[in-house]
């Protein structure tokens, strides 16, 4: 059974169709890039899969189930916003995540936090923006989830931080889980993707493997993306 399946999935805000009859199927073990320009519907699609928005029409299924408490227990979602509580320290934050998610792996979170240089127990407000983004990813990747939804994990961070984030995603690869990464910065991330989904104005325009795109067009996905979305 597919980890994520969208059937004619649509979400409208008034007259604007943020997601327009999307059909998507993502199997276990795949790392998929959701690529599109700003305002193309990436975040809306991810929020639908995370169960944070309900569809206007169509269906979204996680392991065959409509979003609800059962799917939220197996979906690990990284928001594109910073939601870390300033007043907590690392220990309190790990307790907090442990309380929320039964699949939260505290040992893993401690190990990954160490790798990004968060070890002491100073309040989180003392951390830099880049470190906070890395820490949010660490928390999300420390769950033994089936579906990881990462909304813009590498937006607005420096190249070294980007490398750490990419490495964290590779090191946590699990053949039983699927990872979806939304981004408009493709260069650095295409090496870690199996497949890409192009979305524009809410419509899915392409679903293909990275190496098939490279073989067919003799160019990187990044270059191909620039060509397709050239204004």
């Amino acid at each position: 059974m597919a980890i994520l399946e969208c059937k004619a999935l649509s979400k409208s805000y008034g007259l604007t169709k943020a997601v327009d009859s999307a059909d998507i199927k993502i199997e276990a073990g795949r790392v998929v890039g959701l690529l599109g320009p700003n305002g193309s519907g990436k975040t809306t699609l991810i929020k639908l899969a995370a169960g944070l928005l309900s569809p206007t029409s169509g269906e979204v299924l996680i392991e065959g189930m409509a979003p609800g408490p059962e799917t939220k227990a197996i979906v690990s979602y990284l928001s594109d916003r910073d939601y870390l509580p300033d007043w907590m320290n690392l220990n309190q934050l790990l307790d907090y995540f442990g309380d929320f998610y039964s699949d939260f792996n505290r040992e893993k979170a401690i190990e990954l936090s160490k790798r990004i240089g968060v070890v002491d127990n100073k309040p989180l407000k003392t951390l830099s923006k880049g470190t906070r983004e890395k820490l949010q990813l660490v928390l999300v990747m420390s769950r033994d989830a089936k579906l990881f939804l990462l909304d813009e994990p590498i937006g607005g961070v420096d190249p070294a931080t980007r490398d750490t984030i990419i490495d964290t995603i590779i090191k946590n690869y699990n053949p039983d889980a699927a990872v979806i990464i939304s981004t408009h910065i493709i260069t650095d991330i295409e090496k870690i993707l199996d497949d890409v989904i192009f979305i524009n104005e809410g419509k899915i325009s392409l679903v293909e493997s990275v190496d098939d795109i490279r073989a067919k067009h003799q160019k990187s996905v990044d270059a191909y993306f620039r060509e397709v979305y050239k204004c």
Partner: peptide, 10 residues
């Protein structure tokens, strides 16, 4: 894969 920075399936 981690050393090369690539997808493990690839």
């Amino acid at each position: 894969s981690s050393e090369a920075g690539v997808n493990p399936n690839t």
